[in-house]
Design a protein around this nucleic acid. Structure first.
Length: 676
DNA sequence: TTTTCTATAAACAGCA
DNA sequence: GTGCTGTTTATAGAAA
């Protein structure tokens, strides 16, 4: 029966050589069902702009730090000229002085609030500032230490005066210490100037005259639990402590703040910025009013009628009440300062974590990018990770996606000649053509670009190409000038292109023949030379949409495999595009970047799905460029009444020759019905 | 578990 | 008769 069918086909084929080319053969090579998981696509869309911005900020911070250092060094030289000779203790003082040189100015809690709220500083800049704060705290502690020493010296001097003796040496030492303290004051003034310069550069948005409230040295290694504990302490203090008053004088605040961070209030006296405290109380409201004018009712600490100050959550009916609440409950005091410190710690920890994650992501991207670019340098078996390699190929037939890989799905068939091969030639040979089926992951759609890229590799390495026979056959035919090949030429193409097929010829040749006969996308044409095989591209592609529409998982696979789409020949691509086959439009053939590839594919697919489903019903003869190429489809059933309609739509013929196509295993698939 | 798809093997027939 | 070509069937494996 079957035999008769085959014979009949041949005879009939001869008779209808110039008949309609509408082969009904379903393609078994639908390519977009590939199982490539698009989900593996790295989310590379993190934004190069973000990275660039962060780098820019970092560079700015570094630049500011350098500038500060230079300025302070210059000031140090100047003050060094003015400074008197130091006593024996001075060498020990040099270290804190140098540290102080590095610290521009103490940032007030309010300044920190603004920094945190407005996020005017990058993580790096914040870190620099924190370090500066710590250094300045050391400086102030040293000042207190020196003041104590000075007091002791004065006491000693008084005692000595009372004793009737006043050694000149001790007087000199005292004088020197006083001069040194003056030097420290000068340096603090310079640091204030540096802070102003920071503001001019836009790196800080703090007021120039804000009180210099030293921060307690931050515990760099503070762990989250410690932070939580500290935060609990602060918040608990918040509940127990009633606001002492809305109008904290800057002086009082400074005092309390210093007292909380420094053992002695004397630092306040020594602090030259104390005189500027009055400016703060004046400038801060202006600042707030300005910011609120620019962004009315927009405040980082206010949202949904609730004060978002950490640990507060007070309900504020309107923005004005919130402002009042903010000024009253969260004024500049030691509690707010402590809360701000905690918040800074939290932010710092988060920033560190973010930096680590960013670094990790960068490493991942770098790694993947390198991998994706490697094949360009040296031919490599088609692999993978479509999302990474971004192979710009039009989809081919094979449903399976990833080539088989014992190691990692992203590196299926690593060339034997390249690095750590996962599949050695030997192993491939041992497997051989034996009735052992390779994983379907081998059955990756082939593409011209893929073949071209990996051509040398497959020519030399006896590695089984991760493509289906159907894909390879199709590729062989499409590569031919006339888009048609004899069986022997197909054989030759196999052996020429793949070293693997130079062995076990009987097996794979049988498979080739089997595929040629089985898949309807391969059309046998008899010409003068004899029988040649062509590809019915429409049939080849037709099946894909059905699979996709019917199976969500296949849709997903299609998305991922879309990047594999085999680039058809230019003419073919154009023809496909002209015929509104979205998946193969030139737009989709582009080489999208990693960043927009996924979205581009998604968009195209979304449209493609609709288009393909809708177009299927209207598939017309003119739609297939290959139809023009194949004037004769020997296997067509000329006696089929449906064909009498003319050059018939492929769909029609495909579905109306069951009596003839029963030899095609997949003829009766519901797919065809859908197409119809 | 079923379905689908592919690979593999084999049988068979026609033809040069 | 042999080998090539082409068709068909059966089966196994893998994935959805």
């Amino acid at each position: 029966m079957m035999q008769e069918s085959g014979t009949e086909t041949k005879s009939n084929g001869s008779a209808i050589q110039n008949g309609s080319g509408g082969s009904n053969h379903l393609l078994e090579c639908g390519g977009l069902r590939e199982g490539r998981s698009n989900g593996e696509t790295p989310a590379v869309d993190i934004g190069a702009a973000d990275l660039a911005h962060a780098q820019q900020q970092q560079q700015q911070a570094l630049q500011v730090a350098r500038q500060l250092l230079l300025q302070q060094q210059q000031q140090q030289q100047v003050s060094g000229l003015k400074s008197p000779k130091r006593n024996d203790k001075q060498p020990a003082l040099q270290v804190p002085v140098s540290v102080a040189m590095m610290t521009p100015q103490v940032i007030t809690p309010q300044q920190m609030q603004q920094i945190l709220q407005q996020q005017v500083l990058s993580p790096q800049q914040l870190q620099v500032l924190l370090q500066q704060q710590q250094a300045l705290m050391l400086q102030q502690q040293l000042q207190e230490f020196y003041k104590k020493q000075q007091e002791q010296l004065q006491l000693q001097l008084l005692q000595q005066q009372h004793a009737g003796k006043q050694p000149k040496e001790q007087q000199q030492v005292a004088t020197q210490q006083l001069a040194f303290q003056q030097q420290l004051l000068q340096m603090q003034q310079l640091q204030q100037q540096h802070l102003l310069s920071l503001q001019r550069q836009g790196l800080l948005t703090i007021q120039p005259g804000q009180p210099a409230l030293p921060l307690q040295p931050l515990a760099q290694g503070m762990i989250p639990t410690e932070l939580q504990q500290l935060w609990k302490e602060v918040t608990s203090a918040h509940t127990a402590e009633e606001t002492t008053g809305n109008n904290h004088s800057s002086l009082d605040l400074t005092t309390t703040c210093v007292s909380s961070s420094a053992p002695s209030k004397t630092s306040l006296i020594m602090n030259p910025h104390a005189s500027t405290n009055g400016q703060l109380s004046v400038h801060t409201p202006k600042r707030e009013s300005l910011s609120h004018e620019e962004h009315p009712h927009s405040h980082p600490l206010y949202g949904h009628g609730v004060c978002k100050w950490p640990g507060c959550e007070a309900v504020c009916e309107d923005f004005q009440s919130f402002l009042k609440h903010l000024n009253s409950e969260h004024a500049l005091d030691d509690r707010s300062t402590a809360q701000c410190r905690v918040q800074m710690q939290v932010v710092q920890q988060l920033e560190l974590q973010l930096a680590k994650d960013k670094e990790r992501l960068q490493a991942m991207m770098t790694h993947l990018h390198v991998k994706s670019t490697e094949p360009k340098a040296a031919p490599q078996p088609l692999n993978l990770v479509s999302s990474v390699t971004l192979s710009k190929s039009a989809s081919e037939a094979s449903p399976q996606s990833l080539p088989h890989t014992p190691t990692t799905p992203t590196a299926p068939l690593t060339p034997v000649t390249q690095g750590p091969s996962v599949i050695t030639t030997t192993s491939m040979h041992t497997v051989g053509p034996i009735r052992r089926r390779y994983s379907d992951k081998y059955n990756v759609p082939i593409s011209s670009a893929d073949i071209a890229q990996n051509q040398e590799f497959y020519k030399n390495a006896e590695v089984r190409p991760p493509f289906t026979y159907a894909s390879l056959i199709r590729q062989a035919i499409l590569e031919s000038p006339e888009k048609q090949l004899t069986l022997n030429e197909i054989y030759n193409w196999f052996t020429r292109m793949f070293a693997y097929f130079r062995r076990n010829a009987a097996t794979w040749k049988n498979a080739v023949r089997h595929n040629l006969s089985l898949h309807k996308c391969f059309v046998r044409v008899e010409n003068v030379k004899g029988a040649v095989w062509t590809v019915d591209e429409v049939e080849f592609q037709k099946r894909r949409p059905q699979k996709i529409s019917g199976n969500p998982s296949l849709i997903k696979n299609m998305q991922s495999s879309h990047a594999y789409c085999t680039p058809l020949n230019a003419a073919l691509q154009a023809s496909m595009a002209e015929n509104s086959i979205p998946l193969y439009t030139t737009a989709s053939m582009g080489n999208p970047t990693l960043g927009n590839l996924a979205s581009a594919i998604r968009e195209e697919l979304n449209g493609a799905m609709e288009h393909t489903n809708s177009n299927e019903s209207d598939s017309s003869p003119g739609r297939s460029p290959m139809q023009a190429v194949h004037p004769v489809h020997v296997k067509e059933e000329p006696l089929d009444p449906e064909e009498a309609e003319g050059p018939l739509s492929l769909v029609t013929t495909a579905n109306h020759s069951p009596d003839f196509d029963h030899d095609r295993d997949y003829e009766d698939e519901p797919v065809n019905e859908d197409m119809e």
